[in-house]
Design a protein around this nucleic acid. Structure first.
Length: 336
DNA sequence: AAGCCTGACAACCGCCTTAGT
DNA sequence: CACTAAGGCGGTTGTCAGGCT
């Protein structure tokens, strides 16, 4: 037997919000804050369930929401992050200032996904549909494994950052409580991990966090370095990471290669795969030829197939993703 | 002009996680 | 440790506007 819906009480309104309801909700939250969403509707004089109020506030009424058309940069960010994170809209939203997860999800479903499909790219795997045919060759197999490896690494890194953010928030709160000072107004909505992190070492400008299976070190320059566990060097599973400093003598050459790829992307990398995706939009895009969508898309695909190997496409694609992630607001320096 | 279709987006639903007791 | 309430998330549906026939 499942839980009864939160708004199954008779008399509670559903459906689109009226301007009057918006005004009531806004006025109440501006004066009192939302507090408990459960009790808010009654206090605010709304015939709505708390969940509906929360959704309306977070997705529409919140003052720090940016509405309107997505920019090319935002589109690129969404596509790249989706390639890494999948349908984790809230995680993606943390990298796009002032956009809600709901808005991003809707935009993906109505615009971006279709554009990828139109170009013959699987919106789930972000691979070209022909890529499966190439997979029988040794080089493609190796490239696919490499890219998969990179994706897993980066995904794991994001997870680790999220954990750090959470831990940092707790530390800040603890510090706040101890000092009775104003709490930092961080808005961190990373999904919390179930892993229990401990804080075995503090001081000398360096903090170290440990989970039962991994350690992360972040120093003065807030650089996050992730190292694979020695026990299992093949597939970087999130739960198998040992996170250590970049100067560790335990670092193998292959590890350095990965660090280079993740932290120091090649300079002058050509326009990535995603840039080609963005050609699919008409309008005044900087890379657009000005042709109609389908013509431009076809042109882009043609260039891909004649001038680059799929491996090169994917390498650039992932490089641009990794570049992006490295420069997003999730950067630890903004958190600590 | 009317009916139908499609796209866009707001809102809802159900499940999962977390915090409190 | 178990239970419960509340919040959060992602998938899905409902509604409306605009275009097409």
């Amino acid at each position: 037997m499942g839980r009864s819906p939160c708004c199954d009480k008779a008399g509670l309104k559903k459906g689109p919000w009226t301007p009057e309801e918006d005004q009531k909700l806004l006025a109440y939250i501006e004066e009192h804050g939302h507090g408990s969403w459960r009790s808010l509707p009654e206090k605010a004089g709304l015939q709505r369930c708390g969940k509906s109020c929360r959704l309306r506030w977070t997705n529409y009424l919140r003052p720090d929401i940016k509405r309107g058309k997505f920019t090319v940069q935002e589109e690129q960010t969404i596509i790249q992050l989706h390639a890494l994170l999948g349908n984790r809209w809230s995680a993606i939203a943390t990298h796009l200032a002032k956009r809600t997860d709901n808005e991003i999800k809707n935009y993906w479903n109505t615009h971006l996904k279709k554009r990828l499909v139109k170009m013959g790219i699987d919106p789930v795997t972000h691979k070209h549909k022909n890529e499966t045919l190439m997979s029988s060759t040794g080089q493609s197999k190796s490239a696919a494994a490499t890219l998969s490896h990179m994706a897993q690494w980066e995904s794991a890194r994001l997870e680790a950052e999220a954990r750090l953010a959470r831990e940092s928030k707790l530390l800040h709160l603890q510090h706040y409580q101890n000092n009775k000072a104003a709490a930092p107004n961080h808005c961190l909505s990373h999904k919390a991990s179930s892993t229990n992190w401990t804080k075995p070492n503090q001081g000398n400008g360096e903090q170290q966090l440990e989970s039962p299976t991994s350690t992360v070190t972040f120093s003065e320059n807030h650089h996050l370095m992730i190292m694979p566990s020695r026990e299992n060097n093949s597939v970087p599973n999130v739960t198998e990471f040992a996170l250590s400093s970049s100067t560790s003598s335990d670092v193998k050459d292959s590890d350095h290669d990965w660090m280079r790829q993740i932290n120091c992307p090649t300079e002058g990398v050509e326009e990535g795969f995603t840039s080609l995706l963005l050609l699919g939009d008409s309008g005044d895009r900087s890379l657009s030829t000005g042709k109609k969508d389908e013509e431009t898309v076809a042109g882009a695909v043609e260039v891909n197939e004649s001038d680059y190997s799929y491996y090169e496409d994917n390498k650039n694609y992932w490089n641009s993703i990794l570049n992006l992630v490295d420069s997003t607001p999730s950067d630890s320096s903004t958190m600590f």
